[in-house]
Every structure is written in structure tokens, then in C-alpha cells.
Design a protein around this nucleic acid. Structure first.
Length: 103
DNA sequence: GCAATGACTGGTA
DNA sequence: TTACCAGCCATTG
């Protein structure tokens, strides 16, 4: 198990705070933290994503993490996340599902 | 210090 | 819709 540094810890904290049925883009998370960038968030998710609801963090175009599309889709259907496309390429409707930190 | 790399993004064709 | 490109930022060799 890799050690979790402070930045990664914050990223996971935000991801964990995303309510079911909603998502955030990598860029959104980075902007929310006010530090680093989308690539940094992605790197954290690749390392520690397993310890958080990674399927709620997707690309700006609504597509989930590569290599986990089927898993992500299963969670979306289970949580009722608004989908624009329920089959590959799987795409979440960010217009509705986007979570900015406001409850 | 430089170059390559990656679960990124937005624009253009 | 997909494909390619330039910009972006931290990590790694």
C-alpha cells in the first residue's frame, strides 16, 4: 500500500464528499482544491482511487475512467446518475450530474 | 536541468 | 461522432 500524502488525502476527501447520483470532473476537483491541475487529480486517482468512489470523478466530456467503464456504468445505474449514453461510449450528463460542492 | 509520461481540457477539423 | 493538437502540472529517470 502506497502512503497517502496531504494533497492526495484532500483529493480523496473531496471525492468521498460527492453525493450519490452526482459527479465531478478532474478539472472541477482541481479547481475546488485551488491547487495542482486535472492531471494531478488523475494521478492521485490512479494511485488511491480504490479507496474512494472514483466513478464519481470523470473527464470533462462525461466519460468515466479508462478501463473501468463497465464498473462505472453499473454504479451510475445503481445510483440513478443522469446518463447521456448508457452504452459505450458511456457518458454522464454533466449538465445535471455536475456537483460543485454546493449541497 | 531536460525529456518523457499520465485515470486531463478545450479548440479545431 | 472521432481524431489531432497545444497547453497544462507534478512525477520520474
Amino acid at each position: 500500500m502506497p502512503e497517502i500524502d496531504d494533497y492526495s488525502s484532500r483529493v480523496l476527501d473531496v471525492v468521498d464528499a460527492i453525493p450519490p447520483g452526482q459527479v465531478m470532473s478532474y478539472g472541477d476537483v482541481a479547481e475546488y482544491l485551488g491547487k495542482g491541475g486535472p492531471r494531478q487529480v488523475g494521478q492521485v486517482m490512479s494511485r488511491f482511487g480504490a479507496a474512494a468512489p472514483w466513478w464519481r470523478v470523470i473527464h470533462a466530456d462525461g466519460t468515466p475512467a479508462p478501463g473501468h467503464e463497465a464498473q462505472a456504468l453499473a454504479h451510475y445505474l445503481d445510483e440513478g446518475t443522469p446518463l447521456r449514453s448508457a452504452r459505450p461510449p458511456v457518458r454522464v450528463n454533466l449538465r445535471q450530474a455536475r456537483w460543485t460542492g454546493a449541497s
